[in-house]
Design a protein around this nucleic acid. Structure first.
Length: 634
RNA sequence: GCUGGAAUAGCUCAGUUGGUAGAGCAGCUGAUUCGUAAUCAGCAGGUCGCGUGUUCAACUCACGUUUCCAGCUCCA
């Protein structure tokens, strides 16, 4: 048979040869690293029997398909070990995920950390035994009977939900049989390095109305080095955790008295104000006007906007003089009122109203997480009112603006376009038009984007901006949402050139998303070592001995006069101690002054990341820092 | 909200079958006056998250509760 193999071209092989045999014939050494094989757009196990004329691509762990087969096989090994040790366990699903795998279990036994160690030991035995993963196609009724007899109710449920024409396959390794579509590695011995990571609860089928199962997470790699590198990365992420750094660097606090309601400390406020200042400057440049709408508004407004009916569970309420009021969970209704307060001409459009809007949302207690998920946060919101013809240009404008913001912090990002959901309001025609405009805007900017079918808000399609931090994790921050509902509900209009009233189109958009979350991301992105323009304390003057106290205070005053955020450390400590303290506080510049500097009117400059830079005139240091601040350099 | 775990000094953590708490760092005081990541000594600091119970006796055991952590569901 003739097989086209990526990297090797068209080759002729015996008809009976399976994929791994072909791989070995081509390159015995390279074949060792193969995890799976891609045939057309489908990934198969290495025991796959190719057909004449097919195109094969061998996948290693570095390919998504290869890693997937590897982790999925690891998951089966774990399940087999658990079945050996805890025979009463019922199995749910056990897929591969981004950084590893998990298996959902139902058992009377509550799994603990100690169990994980025992399971790992048993897994080692299974890996050593090097059982083959054997695939078998099974008749539907036979499959149902097999699992029903074993009382594996979740497997039965899975089979029952498979489409009528689905090919049902079992994978067997040694004494363990699992319902599974595959593909898998050839045998258990290929899993050279693995670790069980954690235990958690997870609802069956991800539905909170179903029973909660126990989930065991693990990860695996082709060798120990890669496993160690992964574990190191996790440690690094822990080291950068914004909750830990937020406390160490005295940026913000979370107290029992206000769960989900963060306190900002003086240094955190500096950071926050820098972001807001930059935001205001940019919005002025891009033609926005800033407004501020009330935190509390009456029931009639929230009924009109639809929040009273659809968002009630997430809102906080209060009463004023017998009347019902709500604390705003979103800024749009307030902005709608602002727009409506006077008639508008088409000449004013697009009208861009921005608001640093403080919103309160009653999030479930279990989801609160540092600054990333809170109950009170500030959206850097804006609503743009415009004509249909202006949509595309506005979308492009906002996209460019978002790009300039994210670039400033050195973030990469990707864009997702979410389209019409099932429960959408408005005609399909308008939706299609809107989706097309969003897509066109992206194409015009040559921006790649992913489409999330049916993931739009009920009132309109949206573009979401997911930024990637220095550890490769992604966060949804910016969003541009078209809204056809709100202008309708609030009966918004503008007078057109024809002297007739028209309905404006509106977009909601945020760039930071939430100032709180964005600060959390920045803390982790920079590991607390902020660029000079953001650093809460930009410079610290350190004395060598008490003799320089007066001079040092004068230097600090000079810097402060020049608009630099400076502190003075004139404690009677050794210079090494003070430098260590300043480094720990991640202060960008240290100005060391001893007798020599005091005499010459100079300072010895030390940079956080680079160490001693030598002696400079104080005025030159001020100029250097001012320039670096103005440039907002990374 | 759900499942599992945790809560001891400002911070990081010890605390041994139940006998009312200890270290390092930080802080304060004193000594030291030193040239690029930790000088020495002393002092002070805790209703052991909160409540109820068991017990002669609870940081320790039980129950409840609050908050946090890891996930799930949800989300800026």
């Amino acid at each position: 048979m003739n097989i086209n193999i990526e990297g090797y071209g068209m080759q002729n092989f015996d008809d009976s040869m399976i994929a791994i045999a072909i791989a070995k014939e081509l390159d015995k050494e390279a074949a060792k690293a193969y995890c799976a094989v891609q045939v057309g757009d489908k990934v198969q196990g290495l025991a796959y029997q190719p057909q004449d004329g097919e195109t094969l691509k061998f996948l290693t762990f570095a390919d998504d398909g290869g890693a997937h087969a590897f982790r999925h096989s690891s998951s089966h090994i774990m399940a087999q070990a658990i079945q050996h040790l805890f025979p009463d366990t019922k199995f749910g699903i056990g897929p591969a995920i981004k950084d590893g795998f998990y298996y959902d279990l139902d058992s009377e036994h509550i799994f603990t950390e100690e169990d994980l160690a025992a399971i790992e030991q048993e897994m080692k035995k299974i890996i050593k035994a090097n059982y083959k993963f054997e695939r078998a196609e099974v008749d539907r009724s036979e499959a149902l009977k097999y699992f029903a007899d074993k009382d594996e109710i979740y497997k039965v449920d899975l089979i029952e939900h498979l489409p009528e024409d689905a090919v049902i396959t079992f994978y067997t390794q040694g004494d363990f049989v699992d319902l599974c579509a595959g593909p898998h590695l050839l045998s258990t011995g290929s899993v050279k390095a693995f670790k069980l990571m954690s235990l958690a609860g997870a609802y069956w089928r991800g539905d909170s109305d179903n029973k909660m199962l126990q989930r065991v997470y693990g990860t695996s790699f082709p060798n120990k080095e890669e496993l160690d590198a992964y574990l190191f990365k996790l440690e690094e992420a822990k080291r950068r955790d914004h909750r830990k750094l937020g406390q160490e660097l005295e940026l913000f606090l979370l107290m029992d008295e206000g769960p989900g309601f963060p306190f900002f400390l003086p240094k955190g406020m500096v950071l926050r104000n820098q972001l807001e200042n930059y935001w205001r400057e940019e919005h002025a440049k891009w033609g926005y006007s800033e407004i501020k709408t009330p935190l509390i508004l009456n029931r009639a407004l929230w009924e009109r906007s639809g929040h009273w009916d659809h968002y009630k569970n997430n809102m906080y309420f209060t009463q004023i003089d017998e009347g019902d009021y709500a604390v705003k969970p979103m800024n749009c209704p307030g902005c709608m009122l602002t727009y409506k307060a006077k008639p508008h001409s088409y000449k004013e459009l697009p009208l861009r109203l921005a608001e640093m809007g403080i919103v309160h949302r009653h999030e479930l207690s279990g989801v609160l997480h540092g600054l990333m998920r809170v109950r009170c946060f500030t959206q850097d919101d804006a609503h743009i009112f415009m004509t249909e013809e202006q949509i595309k240009e506005e979308i492009i404008g906002v996209t460019k603006m978002i790009d300039s913001f994210y670039s400033l912090f050195g973030f990469n990002y990707h864009v997702e376009l979410s389209t019409r959901p099932a429960k959408a309001m408005g005609s399909e025609e308008i939706w299609h038009m809107a989706e097309a405009v969003l897509a066109e805007a992206m194409q015009e900017m040559s921006k790649e984007y992913v489409i999330n079918e049916g993931d739009g808000a009920f009132y309109g399609p949206k573009l979401d901006f997911h930024l990637e931090d220095s550890l490769g994790r992604t966060w949804q921050c910016g969003t541009i949402q078209l809204d056809f509902q709100m202008p309708e509900k609030f009966d918004l209009s503008y007078i057109g050139a024809d002297n007739q009233p028209h309905r404006p189109v509106m977009i909601h958009r945020v760039i930071f998303g939430s100032i709180e979350r964005f600060i959390g991301i920045l803390i982790e992105h920079y590991a607390g070592a902020f660029p000079l323009w953001l650093a809460p304390v930009q410079a610290k003057v350190l004395t060598i001995t008490d003799r320089q106290n007066e001079y040092a205070a004068a230097v600090a005053a000079q810097l402060a006069q020049a608009g630099i955020r400076v502190e003075l450390d004139d404690r009677s400590e050794k210079i090494g101690y003070k430098i260590r303290a300043a480094q720990t506080e991640k202060i960008p510049y240290m100005l060391v002054v001893g007798d020599k500097e005091a005499e010459d009117g100079t300072v010895a400059l030390r940079k956080r990341a680079e160490g001693d830079l030598g002696v400079f005139a104080t005025a030159d240091v001020i100029k250097r820092l001012q320039e670096e601040i103005a440039s907002k350099a990374q």
